[in-house]
Amino acid sequence: MIGTHDSRRVVTDAMAGCALGLAVLAYLALRDGLVLHLWLRDLVGDHAMGTIRSAGGARAFPPWVKFSAPDGLWQFAFCLVMLRIWRGAAWTSAKVAWCALPVVIGLGVEIGQAFHWVAGTFDPIDLLASVVAIGAAFGFNASIGTSRSREALARGSWKRSTWPWWRDRRLPFLKRLDNRRSDSKPLVS
């Protein structure tokens, strides 16, 4: 971005953080006997852990909330963070590989559980949750568009890339840039 504040980054970070926080909370409060419990107990202490555990144990949640939703939230956060890092970069093989890695890991673990390659229990609802989460993350990333570099702007390959586009502070700058250009191809229509 050129001197403008990109609210999309803030929104993406907040979404990923909330998803991951919810997933961790669900794992802590609704599940029993995970390695995460041992780690977090050392981190936050017995008293806080007891509060979290009893808050979750006192209510009855449907199984998909207990077992599948945390997986989906983890997958969503993972994809979103990776896409956030590579947003605006050219589609090189490195970007493809890094952005595909969360998908491969998430789906690979689920499918690996079906074939007993990975420890755990295979559940088609878990798989569905992961697929939905991947779709949501990639869909969200595509819907908010990408930032373009100054060089890309100079090349004229700029498309409407900010969201919301009507609050784009670059418009005056781009119009000035457009006036300086010799060819008649407008940057901003």
């Binding site: 991951l20 961790v24 794992y27 599940r31 006997g33 995970l34 390695v35 995460l36 780690w39 945390p70 983890w74 956060a77 993972f78 963070v81 969360p102 890991i105 673990v109 420890a119 755990g120």
Partner: peptide, 10 residues
């Protein structure tokens, strides 16, 4: 995230 995934094992 991979370490986090390992944390969700039993």
């Amino acid at each position: 995230f991979t370490v986090g995934l390992a944390g969700t094992s039993k």
